[in-house]
Amino acid sequence: MLDPRTDPEPAYWDDLRTQAGLRADWAWPVLAVQAWGARTPQLVTVLFDGAEPVAAVNAGWLGLPAGRFSFARAGSRPRLGALHVRGPGSAAVPGWWSAEHVPLAEFADAYTRAARAALGPGALGVVWRQVRPDQVDQIKHRVGKALTTEPLWTIHTGRWTDREQWLMALSRSRRSNLRGIVKRMTADDNLEVRVQTGAVIDDRPVAEVMRWNDAKYGGALIPRVRVLGGYLRELSAQPDVRSYSYLDRSTGRLLAFGHVLDHPQRPVVRSWSQLPRDRGGIRDLYFHHLASVVGWSIDEGRLGLELGKGKSREKESLGAEPTEQVALAVPTRWW
């Protein structure tokens, strides 16, 4: 069980990421800077079969005492709580991987036992996010509580060989709408769309734009942690990350920004935020962005493009299909 803030990157980590197909948010420098900006310790656990890594889990160690307004100190851990298994920096993707030959039930049981052994009797349970319905019985091992959550949406771009085929698969109204949006954006000489891979970005304007998206998901009891500049810089710099910037040419002002985490088969649209229209934003940038990313995914021969949760109506209109997801709370076993 490793803490990316203080533990060095394991020598096997790059090979494990390649084998598991883990995206750029699992790069060790990204994990480290993300963990430094979290309210709770973020722990990475690697399970071995002999000398071979066969599973990896990312989890936040949530519990008491809790810090509502402070970051977790290095070495600090709650005395009582549960592990929250989720994707690094995002609950919209699973936070674990196991090799194909490892039975899921054995993997989940080994992880919960290892967590209790490492964290002590105060580790009362594990909350697994983004579990498929067919995985529930294997993970909960006859005990636990399952709750259906928002589905994840995927556009299966491998069905089409070009963008026109994708557009023709949509409804007439959405197809016409997208064509109009692309035409209008292309004709706007004051709008620059900049796409970069492994980019060195100025994180300040990006963070300013991102806060408008963060504000939509903030809570009153525990305020949302804003996206930190160091995290944006490190993630954007990864060679398998595409950064999308929409800029006002006349002022140089950033109007919208998004990340796509590339993958040989299924890239992820990781983040998107734009200025509100009353702050100088432009309507329909979201649809222009998704149309651009879908076209890129088709051109590159990717099997699918994962769009995450939320905005179900909009994503379905673009040809995305839902995958049901379950959150699963499982008590740790002391026996």
Rank of each mutant, 00 (worst) to 15 (best):
L2R: 11
P4W: 02
D7Y: 05
W13P: 03
G21V: 10
R23F: 10
A24L: 01
D25V: 13
D25S: 13
P29C: 01
V30R: 04
G37L: 02
T40F: 08
T40S: 15
L47W: 07
L47M: 08
D49T: 06
A51R: 09
V54Q: 00
V54K: 05
W61V: 14
L64R: 09
L64K: 10
R68W: 01
F69A: 15
A72N: 13
G75N: 10
R77T: 15
L80E: 05
L80Y: 05
L83T: 05
G87P: 02
A91W: 05
P94W: 07
S98G: 07
E100L: 07
F107C: 08
R113Q: 03
R116A: 15
L119A: 14
G120S: 08
L124P: 03
P133N: 06
D134A: 14
D137F: 08
Q138E: 15
R142P: 01
K145C: 13
L147I: 11
I155S: 09
H156T: 14
G158Q: 00
D162V: 04
E164M: 10
Q165I: 01
L170C: 04
L170D: 07
R175S: 01
L178V: 03
I181G: 11
R184Q: 10
N190Y: 03
R194E: 12
R194Y: 07
V195H: 00
G198A: 08
A199D: 04
R204E: 10
A207S: 01
A207I: 02
E208V: 06
N213A: 12
D214A: 15
D214K: 12
A215G: 06
A215L: 09
K216D: 10
Y217P: 07
I222N: 15
R224P: 06
V225M: 14
V225W: 11
R226L: 14
L232K: 03
E234I: 07
A237V: 01
Q238L: 09
R242T: 02
S243C: 11
S250N: 04
L254N: 03
G258M: 00
L261I: 11
D262W: 11
V268A: 13
R270F: 15
R270D: 14
W272L: 12
L275G: 10
D278W: 04
G280A: 00
R283L: 11
D284C: 12
A291I: 01
W296A: 15
S297E: 03
E300W: 02
R302I: 13
L303E: 11
L305T: 06
L305Q: 06
E306V: 14
E316D: 13
G319C: 04
A320G: 06
T323A: 14
L328R: 03
T332V: 03
T332I: 01
T332L: 02
R333D: 06
